[in-house]
Design a protein around this nucleic acid. Structure first.
Lengths: 95, 95
DNA sequence: CATCTATGTTGACGTCCATCGATACAGCTG
DNA sequence: CAGCTGTATCGATGGACGTCAACATAGATG
């Protein structure tokens, strides 16, 4: 594993390395239709600006995508990235 | 996902959220026999104390175990924890 | 246009973290 | 015991991070 690969992958793990972000991500992923409006998932015990901040981080890490539809903004999981992370975890275990 | 579950899982993701730790972890996991001596994997571009520090973090997160054999210390991957993290990543993607 | 709700941005603050040099400890070898 | 190598700990430092209050923006509606 090169330094560049590690840098990229570490960004994704780091994004899930915060309890609030992990709950937000899980909420989006397990929500009906694979997407969720911010208002559906913002009950994680922190203020609204903090929720917005964490969703932005998850988006920057490539784990979520967002789309505005009228008044609300919907987030959904980026499936390809999930697969990459899963591979990183399952591959070494098989050795 | 409860706050407690998120707290526990986030600790594991956070441990892999540093490029140096991710490279160390990957090096141990992919090393012959599933274990590696520190001297085998310490070429990640940081000082020896820093390597030791990161290995300790991975150990505290429950991702690695260590055992001293004579002069050298060997680290190996904790398989059960890997499975738990993999489940967290693959389960929501299936929904 | 005025106003309301939903969401994002900014600035500040306290805390945690990665890194290093210096040093200590463990085990081998002479 | 003395000296050497491999690994861990300590203390310090600079930077990154999570959180909030205040404010800004987008879209809907009257």
């Amino acid at each position: 594993m090169t330094a560049e690969e590690a840098e990229t992958a570490a960004r994704m793990f780091k994004a899930l390395g915060d309890p609030v972000r992990l709950r937000l991500f899980s909420a989006v992923a397990s929500h009906e239709g694979g997407e969720a409006c911010v208002c559906d998932i913002s009950d994680v015990g922190v203020s609204q600006p903090t929720v917005s901040h964490h969703l932005k981080k998850l988006k920057e890490a490539g784990l979520l995508t967002s789309e505005r539809r009228g008044t609300w903004v919907y987030y959904r999981v980026e499936p390809s990235v999930l697969a990459a992370m899963g591979k990183l975890l399952s591959l070494p275990a098989a050795v």
